[in-house]
Amino acid sequence: MQTAMLRLSVALKAGFRPGQPRIPSGQPDGGQWTRVPGYAQIHQISRRRAGRGQIRIGGRWQAITPAQEVRLALSQNAVRRALREVRELDPNWKPPAQAYSTVEGLISANRAIELEARFRLFQLLGTRAEPGPYAGEWIPAPPTNRSLNRSERQEIDRIGRRWGCHRCGSMNPGTKSGSFIGDHQVPKSMGRPTRIYPHCAKCSASQGGLIGAYRRRYTE
């Protein structure tokens, strides 16, 4: 138990910054951490009752378990790290606003911001995560993570024969079957795809290698 509490203490203090602004005393939330531009909001843990943590979200105090404290601290540290890496390449990038009203919602919001930052970094590193210069027509991505059916594959081939590979413009798919490869945009490993474009074998392999390198560097 003592070892677990020590680990918790280290995790909670890992992101502490003495110069981080607080709301002035005398106001309803006086003393609370305030938002730092571009970062997830930092919430102070209060020990209002012995052995029971409290956190203020949306103007009201809520109970937070030790396990949630650890997960919250880890999520906040992950957000800071992801934003720092993005801003090395794009200093003005800002994550989308997140709404939450519970501890679990706050943790999920931090995770969403981290993923947005990771995807922006993925784009900045030149990993070809967006439709290419030869992108023309496309088909909607299936709502579930299933393989394309026969009619969808035929439609991708029709688009490929007209527009070529969306990345390089090649009219030759370069596959043994002679069919184009359906390229999910965004890649399934980076988010929820909404469109599928034709890809040639060469560009598909190149993108796969870049995605693999990205994931090994930033997510493993």
Results as ranks from 00 to 15, higher is better:
132 G>N: 10
211 I>F: 14
171 M>A: 14
90 D>S: 00
40 A>H: 00
107 I>N: 11
60 R>K: 14
48 R>H: 10
165 C>V: 03
85 E>H: 01
133 P>K: 13
204 S>T: 05
189 S>F: 06
115 L>P: 02
153 R>P: 00
29 D>T: 09
102 T>G: 09
203 C>T: 06
162 R>I: 07
219 T>M: 09
47 R>Y: 12
25 S>C: 02
104 E>S: 11
158 R>W: 15
218 Y>K: 02
153 R>M: 10
9 S>Q: 11
215 R>L: 13
150 R>H: 06
210 L>I: 04
74 L>S: 05
44 Q>S: 07
143 P>G: 03
22 R>G: 00
4 A>L: 11
143 P>Y: 13
53 G>D: 13
130 E>L: 08
76 Q>G: 04
24 P>F: 09
165 C>N: 02
153 R>C: 03
5 M>P: 01
83 L>Q: 07
26 G>V: 08
27 Q>M: 10
214 Y>H: 12
134 Y>I: 02
183 D>V: 03
164 G>Q: 12
123 Q>D: 11
49 R>K: 14
43 H>M: 04
119 F>Q: 11
165 C>Y: 08
53 G>S: 10
31 G>F: 09
167 R>K: 03
28 P>M: 08
8 L>Y: 11
103 V>K: 06
95 P>F: 07
1 M>I: 05
43 H>C: 04
3 T>W: 15
162 R>K: 13
83 L>I: 13
74 L>Y: 09
155 E>C: 00
34 T>P: 01
69 E>K: 01
29 D>L: 12
121 L>G: 01
122 F>V: 00
143 P>K: 12
146 R>H: 08
106 L>D: 06
5 M>L: 13
189 S>Y: 07
153 R>G: 01
154 Q>N: 14
15 G>T: 11
134 Y>G: 02
112 A>V: 01
164 G>D: 13
162 R>A: 08
123 Q>F: 04
71 R>N: 12
12 L>S: 02
56 R>D: 06
31 G>T: 07
68 Q>A: 06
37 P>M: 07
5 M>W: 14
